[in-house]
Amino acid sequence: MSSLSRADVANLARLARIDMTDQELDSLATEMDVILGAVARVQEVATPDIAPTSHPLPLRNVTRPDVVEPSLTPEEALSGAPASEDQRFRVPQILGEEA
């Protein structure tokens, strides 16, 4: 059972896009060790001959007829936006500073 360091948890937090404090990272590292120790039990019975199940229903490619139906108006779609402009979502800058 590998134990997680603060740096390991910081990396997971970065992947999950959560800006955690050092204190949170430390307490999570401890908790994760305990939880992972408990859930690792699945490995005791998960032998190679068993097929994995991802979903309770054996569904594949469920589609609907390709018919245009009424949908949200631009105003409705933008109604919950933290910021909007010209019928579009306004977001903080995505690329680096322009030269």
Partner: peptide
């Protein structure tokens, strides 16, 4: 992956 196998079981 192991958890998915347990789900099968």
């Amino acid at each position: 992956g192991s958890a998915q196998k347990v789900r099968t079981l």
